[in-house]
């Protein structure tokens, strides 16, 4: 079955065909069904239902109804006349997410990154570290200059900004390289399955 479905998906590389369409539809259907069931049992039942109707001896926790009502209000988007009700839970989600992210993001992507960029430009007896630190500091500085748009980027300032673009391009290139590697890894996984697990040709 695994080989049949894998080959069906790969057959798209030749051209679109009914075999591929069947495999794709099967995948989408199973994924949606699995996701729905998992979330239903782990969210609705475990977090709402079990708290309102707990097992014998446990107190009912009506505070969870607030979440349930907000969830229902979100679903009112499907009714255009009273769809505006969904803005309230949405506002709650946006506010909550912003609050949850604020501290962690400021710490991990702000403070700690700034701290780790303040580096010595000369490390005695370690040429690798010296060159690495210089590249990191210069790259960060030039990248920040490029994103400072309040001054026209010309002259020496423009050249520094251009160096910033240069560093950004290297970053994008590295990301592309990693993406290629990731896609090849997925293909290797499938080929390993077909030729190893299925056909038994790989020792």
């Amino acid at each position: 079955m695994g080989a049949f479905l894998t080959l069906g998906i790969i057959s798209f590389l030749y051209k679109d065909n009914p075999w591929y369409k069947f495999c794709e539809a099967l995948f989408v259907g199973i994924s949606a069904g699995y996701w729905f069931c998992t979330v239903f049992w782990s969210q609705f039942v475990a977090k709402l239902w079990d708290n309102i109707y707990p097992t014998a001896g446990q107190p009912r926790q009506y505070v969870y109804l607030v979440g349930g009502i907000l969830g229902l209000m979100m679903l009112l988007r499907l009714v255009p006349k009273i769809g505006w009700f969904s803005r309230w839970p949405l506002a709650f989600v946006v506010g909550g997410t912003a609050g949850a992210y604020l501290i962690g993001y400021a710490l991990s992507n702000g403070m700690k990154q700034v701290k780790s960029t303040i580096l010595p430009l000369w490390v005695s007896g370690n040429l690798n570290a010296t060159v690495g630190n210089i590249i990191l500091v210069v790259g960060t500085f030039c990248g920040l200059i490029y994103f400072f748009f309040s001054k026209e980027q010309k002259g020496t300032y423009g050249k520094v900004a251009k160096l910033g673009i240069f560093f950004l391009m290297i970053t994008f290139g590295a990301s592309f390289g990693y993406t290629v590697m990731a896609r090849m890894s997925l293909l290797i996984g499938r080929m390993d399955f077909l030729f190893g697990t299925w056909l038994g040709l790989i020792k």
Binding site: S108, Q113, T171, Y178, A182
Partner: peptide
């Protein structure tokens, strides 16, 4: 990193997909 390591200062190691690796090197 953002929600746990930064707040609780606990040791964290990561194994990730190649696509996300460049984002995590910092």
């Amino acid at each position: 990193v953002q929600q746990v390591q930064a707040r609780y200062n606990i040791g964290l190691v990561s194994g990730c997909t190649a696509v996300s690796a460049p984002e995590y090197y910092p």
